[in-house]
Design a protein around this nucleic acid. Structure first.
Length: 474
RNA sequence: CGGGAAGUGGCUCAACUUGGUAGAGCACCUGGUUUGGGACCAGGUGGUUGCAGGUUCAAAUCCUGUCUUCCCGACCA
């Protein structure tokens, strides 16, 4: 049964998306353009992401720090590519109290400059290296078109910034961080991603190269979901982050940065959710199990509490819905909020010694013998739901991944059933621009390991250099 | 930033054309009856109409500006 307050996903995808965001109480609009209020249901997802990712970062030797929110203009301007890339979308602070500032400051759109400035003051020797710092914070980019989670002006993210003694070590870090993001997306968010290198046109301003993970949404539109940049010595030379190396010579550090943001919550919605509302993979769901007493008799409540206690002991997050709503309302509420597994406890079932489980992903209802090991049954089902969501998403991604050998084929795909399009590219930016004329198709990433599917560029027909995945992006 | 549409209790809308005391449904509160897929009855609370100016005896309604949201482009995580 579909939810009344949600537009159907196949009727109007954009409307469906915003309907789910508000029906599931993830976020609401504020009075500041492009700045959303992330509500408890939405923030709890972000907190889980933080918990999982933060642990992975700590395990790989990273430490958290906090940098200023303001960047003086001269500091920002030291690296010209970065400022050129971000100039159109920074916000400036020009007054403090009623006094005009001598030098204006921007609100951080990203913190390469601050980290670089800091590193330049504390690094003296190769013994100070590497430094692998991360910060959880919000940044501000003056976006023109905004959508909740996908593109807001202020958004929450983590940005890791590391400095290394050698190029090899920094490149290794760049690669490793992308692998961590891939793991976060695939194993926890149940979102399959493709990964590769950004083209020169699409890479981060100031990077030597950018690695990316790209996810495909239900409607075939792609979402850049996490990036890891290798800077070489660009910033270390601009900001003079130098040290005495093992040969007692001055040398500049090799640097990386990488980040993922609350945008992934948008991805989570657009990959898994449906016309009933939010669907959350168990491993990221703030509440994994909702127990619903059909009618609050002492016996029913007793059973609910017993189940809740044993699930809690097993580390499963569980709640009992004891509001005085009707059973049907509670079912619908658990569904719109994306609770992976619902347990329905009612007198009628109990008389037969059973309780009912309802899966959010398949809507399947399962009768469970009340005397069996409920905890392991729940664990098993949560695991199945997690896998099923991933497999379903993977299957769809594969179905929506095409190969094209001519511009006409690309056009045909993008106009009829957008998705990932694999096609050869000569490396020329003009061809990327030509591609953009087809419904805004852009290169998502260069697949570096894959074998070529053709020998000529899909646009100009000249000798091809790279196999590229193309797509329409959010 | 260009082109289009829209802002009226928390939500969906009516009243606007032709200025004259802002209405309804849902939600919310109280009491009661209910509870296996968004319960029912009765009684209530809540809005000076996004904001700021202007015209007028009188503005939700007319005019100007501005902010926000949505759609289409350009720009971007």
């Amino acid at each position: 049964m579909k939810n009344k307050s949600i537009t159907s996903r196949d009727v109007d995808f954009a409307k469906w998306y915003t309907d789910v965001v508000s029906a599931a109480h993830l976020a609401t609009y504020s009075n500041v353009k492009g700045c959303i209020v992330i509500e408890p249901n939405g923030y709890a997802i972000w907190e889980n992401v933080q918990k999982i990712l933060d642990q992975m970062l700590k395990e790989t030797g990273h430490q958290n720090v906090s940098m200023p929110m303001l960047i003086p203009e001269n500091l920002l301007r030291k690296e010209s590519e970065l400022i050129n890339g971000f100039a159109p979308e920074v916000a400036w602070v020009t007054e403090g109290g009623s006094k005009k500032l001598e030098e204006r400051m921007c609100i951080r759109p990203t913190s390469e400059t601050l980290f670089s400035d800091y590193y330049s003051t504390v690094i003296r020797s190769y013994r100070d290296l590497p430094k692998k710092y991360n910060q959880w914070c919000s940044v501000l980019r003056w976006e023109k078109e905004t959508r909740p989670f996908l593109r807001s002006r202020e958004f929450l993210w983590q940005e890791g910034h590391t400095v290394h003694e050698t190029q090899e070590e920094a490149e290794e870090e760049t690669k490793n961080m992308l692998a961590i993001y891939k793991k976060l997306f695939e194993e926890y968010l149940a979102i399959p991603v493709i990964s590769g290198r950004k083209t020169e046109k699409e890479k981060f301003a100031g990077a030597e190269y950018t690695l990316t993970i790209e996810a495909l949404m239900y409607n075939g539109v792609s979402l850049q979901s996490g990036t890891s940049h290798y800077f070489g010595q660009k910033f270390s030379k601009a900001y003079d982050i130098s040290f005495l190396n093992r040969n007692n010579e001055m040398s500049h550090v090799y640097q990386t940065s990488w980040g993922v943001s609350t945008r992934m919550i948008g991805g989570l919605i657009m990959v898994h959710s449906d016309d009933k509302g939010l669907v959350l993979p168990p491993r990221i769901a703030p509440t994994q199990v909702m127990i619903i007493p059909i009618k609050e008799t002492p016996k029913v409540i007793d059973v609910c509490e017993n189940i809740a206690d044993s699930l809690k002991q097993a580390g499963i997050t569980v709640k009992i819905d004891r509001t005085d709503k009707s059973a049907g309302f509670k079912f619908a509420e658990a569904e719109v909020n994306g609770i992976p597994l619902r347990i329905e406890v009612g007198e009628r079932d109990l008389e037969q010694g059973i309780i009912t489980f309802a899966r959010r992903d398949t809507s399947e209802k399962i009768n469970i013998d009340y005397n069996q090991d409920i905890v392991s049954k729940v664990q098993q089902l949560l695991e199945e739901i997690q896998n099923n969501l991933y497999q379903t998403a993977l299957h769809r991604q594969q179905e929506l991944t095409f190969e094209a050998h001519s511009l006409d084929e690309v056009k045909d795909i993008m106009e009829h059933h957008p998705g990932f399009v694999k096609a050869m590219w000569c490396g020329d930016e003009a061809c990327e621009l030509k591609m953009k004329e087809i419904k805004g198709t852009k290169s998502r990433c260069i697949l570096e390991q894959a074998s070529p599917i053709d020998d000529h560029c899909v646009v100009c027909g000249k000798k091809a250099k790279h196999l590229v995945v193309w797509g329409i992006q959010y």
